[in-house]
Simulated scan of single mutants.
Amino acid sequence: MIEIKTPGELEAMRAAGLVVARTLAAVTAAARAGVTTAELDELAEQTIRDAGATPSFKGYHGFPGSICASLNEQIVHGIPSEEQALSEGDLLSVDCGAILDGWHGDSAVTIEVGVVSESDRALSAATKAAMWAGIESVSPGGRLTDISHAVQKAAERVGRADGIEYGMIAEYGGHGIGSQMHMEPFLPNLGKPGKGPKLKVGMALAVEPMLTGGTGETVELADGWTVVTADGSRAAHWEHTVAITEEGPWVLTEPEPAA
């Protein structure tokens, strides 16, 4: 069963999403050479708790951090560490979740530490473009894999423009979200359109493509969490929580517009 939210419940999810947006903004501003991923994790947890919310990730199946901090060849689920200091030119993907009044928000950004290579900047931009293409395809009456197809085609289109075939991660993808962080359905980041559950008003999904500068092959490290590229290529990860409404997609984790 896919959870259907009332308008009031979606508003509550928006409040949780804004906590996540503010937390990621704070982490992005603090991410510079010399700062450890443990320090960023501490900042994220404090920001979430100051808002009256709870970190979704901390303790989830034993995960020790409030954020996933995935550096360079790490794709997802990187564990924050006091031994992991950022360096100029790093590419850092930060995934963050918060629970507020029983409702979840979940979002991820890829942060450029100082000046990064043109190829890394292009990789992150391609991943972000693929995410937005998926979000824009969210429509009542559509099918789940319409989103998957939009993500894949955008990644391929941008890759052709960049002159590189980006690696698509098949094992990991988006998911339903609401009263729990991970819910049905699983949302693949590639596939043919017109398949899977019909999209209905009141559903909420996390749309989260991950691309690499090499192949889509992955390896899970011995810590049982961190997933890296098999070929050592760089990776990027972007994510937003999106609600399905009569008016179209509502991005619940998008920052508030500047005054």
Rank of each mutant, 00 (worst) to 15 (best):
D146T: 01
E45G: 03
A53R: 05
P7Y: 06
Y60D: 06
A235I: 08
L40Y: 00
M168R: 15
T253E: 03
L221Q: 13
D162A: 15
S93T: 15
I244P: 03
E118M: 03
S81Y: 06
I79L: 08
K192M: 15
L18M: 11
E42I: 12
I244M: 00
G213Q: 12
P188N: 05
G214K: 09
S148P: 00
T28M: 08
H104G: 00
I111R: 02
T212H: 08
G89T: 03
G178A: 04
A15T: 08
K128S: 06
A108T: 06
G17L: 00
H104D: 06
R22H: 10
M210I: 12
G248Y: 13
F57A: 05
A259D: 12
H182K: 09
H237L: 13
E254K: 15
S117L: 12
A53V: 00
A33P: 00
S124H: 12
A26V: 04
G248A: 04
L18F: 13
L187Q: 02
T127V: 01
G8L: 08
S87Y: 15
M181E: 10
D101G: 04
G89Y: 01
H104M: 09
A204S: 11
V242R: 12
G216R: 13
V228K: 15
G194P: 03
R234H: 15
Q74H: 10
I135G: 04
L18Q: 05
L100Y: 11
A258N: 10
A243K: 06
I67E: 00
A236V: 01
A122V: 12
W225P: 04
A133H: 09
I169Q: 07
V227M: 01
A133C: 06
I111Q: 01
L71E: 11
V251K: 04
Q84N: 09
E208S: 14
G202T: 06
S148M: 07
G142T: 05
A230N: 07
D90I: 01
T226E: 05
K5D: 08
A243N: 09
C96W: 08
M1S: 14
E256R: 15
D223N: 02
A243L: 11
G176N: 01
G65F: 07
A108S: 13
G105E: 03
E217G: 02
S117P: 14
G8N: 08
M210N: 05
T23G: 10
G34T: 04
E254G: 10
Y60R: 07
R14C: 00
W225V: 10
G216H: 11
G248L: 08
G97H: 05
E247G: 04
G196V: 01
V76K: 01
G97K: 03
G213W: 13
A38S: 09
H237W: 14
S179G: 14
T36V: 15
E88K: 06
R32F: 09
S148E: 08
I75A: 05
E83P: 00
G214T: 05
A85C: 12
G173N: 07
G216P: 00
T215I: 07
L86K: 11
G194M: 04
E156Q: 10
I135E: 08
A15R: 14
H77P: 10
S81V: 05
T245W: 14
A16H: 09
